[in-house]
Structures are given as structure tokens and as C-alpha cells.
Design a binder for these strands. Structure first.
Lengths: 117, 117
DNA sequence: ACCTATTTGTCCGTATGTATG
DNA sequence: CCATACATACGGACAAATAGG
């Protein structure tokens, strides 16, 4: 399933939907040219309103990940192929870690710790 | 009036509303710290739905021109003061280009063409 | 060239939630 | 505690662009 929602999450539904698509793109499970399912179908299968799905699609369009057009649907852009979720955050983190003389293992442990908190 | 709409325009209402605020900021008629009228009030005076106004406010927030917060309203950001006229025009142009499904290259060629005409 | 189904776009309305002051 | 004001989600209606027959 390309789109999914987590009932236990407090994040907005449209954000969750967009995030699930980003994740698929990030792991290359969605490639440029591929089409996302019609908002209507997603809405029906996930039992959410079509507007919620469309809002997620429009968010992805604003991010340049999909090309959204009437009658055509949501198509993964070429730009999406170069998409990496943490492309900007990771280099900054590593640079700062180096400035402080931290080891890779130390940084990793800090990340893991943060994830489990 | 800070926000206005043109009944003869075919542009979406929320785009018109955002554009009118951008214009005010561009001519320095709105300064950082100033608050836009509550969406509810704008909706009532212009006889549009509150969601249409909120969508315009959210668009301006995405562009970094206003700080939008619950219970507080829409406040002009510091960044807005440094915005050049082009910096205010570009987001609107890009937003509209995206709505029409235009590619970056297409928009660029249109701009170049316009410059050389 | 025409028609139809599909699909997103906008706008309205309503309800409820949540942060701010 | 309370009023204000934005945030999200639902639903409905109609418009407009696209694709396919």
C-alpha cells in the first residue's frame, strides 16, 4: 500500500498521507512517471475524505515531488528521483559533530537515544 | 482595505486575497509585527467563506510573509520587510505555474521570452 | 469533432479540536 | 475559566482539464 495512516498518531491525516508517499519515494519504491492512485480511491480504501487526500497530494506538489493535474492524477516527478529526506539535515549534523570531535558511534548512539525517547 | 477581491478576475479567491496582502507588504503599507484582520472578519466583510481566507493566510505563511498562530492571528514577519518586489511576485507566479502543470523549464523559457520581447 | 468518464480545483458549509491571551 | 482565532476533517456542489472511445 502506497498510502497509509496510523490511527495512534497525533499527526494530521494529510501529513501522514504525504509522509507515507515521501517514504516510498525515499526508498525508491516509487519512481518518476509512476502515478499515485486517484484521490477518490485512496479516500475510499482508507475511509478518509477525498479532500484530505487531495490536500496531501497538493502538499507533495508544493514540495516538487509530484505533478498534479486535473483528469490526469498525481505523477511522480523526475526531481523526486533525487529526493532524499535528510539530504540537508545529515551533512549539517555530521559537520557539527566533527567540529566537536565526536566519533561516528557517539553520534549514532545519540540518534538512537533520541528516537527511543 | 488590506484584503480585496476582484469579481472580474478568474484567479482563485484565495490567490487574490494573498496577492493583495503581498502588494501591501511590497509597498510597505504593512510592516513586521502588524496583524492582519481575523479571518472571520475578512470573510464576513468580503462575503467569502472563512476557509478561503484561511487558505490565503496559510499560503502567505508558507511563503514566510506571515506568522500564523492559533488564538493569535496572522502577524507580518520580520522577513517580510526584507522582501523585494520580485521576491513577492515569484511565489505567486510559481504557484500559478504549478496549478497549470507547467515545468520549471517552461516557465523559464516564458520569462526569457518576455524579457526579449 | 464529439461525447463521456475520470480526476483534480475551488468554494461553501458545519463540526470539533487546540493554542493563545 | 473564558473568549478568540486558527487547524483539521468531514460533506456537498460545481467547475475545469484530461484521456479515451
Amino acid at each position: 500500500m502506497i498510502l497509509s495512516i496510523d490511527p495512534s498518531s497525533s499527526a494530521p491525516l494529510f501529513e501522514q498521507l504525504a509522509a507515507s508517499v515521501r517514504a516510498e519515494i525515499g526508498r525508491r519504491a516509487l519512481s518518476p512517471g509512476e502515478r499515485l492512485p486517484a484521490a477518490h480511491d485512496v479516500a475510499e480504501s482508507l475511509e478518509v475524505n477525498i479532500h484530505t487526500v487531495l490536500r496531501a497530494y497538493q502538499l507533495l506538489r508544493d514540495e516538487g515531488l509530484v505533478d498534479l493535474r486535473r483528469g490526469r492524477g498525481a505523477v511522480i516527478t523526475e526531481r523526486a528521483a533525487q529526493f532524499s529526506p535528510l539530504a540537508t539535515a545529515i551533512p549539517g549534523l555530521v559537520a557539527e559533530a566533527r567540529r566537536h570531535g565526536l566519533t561516528v558511534d557517539h553520534v549514532v548512539s545519540l540518534v538512537r537515544k533520541e528516537f527511543s525517547s
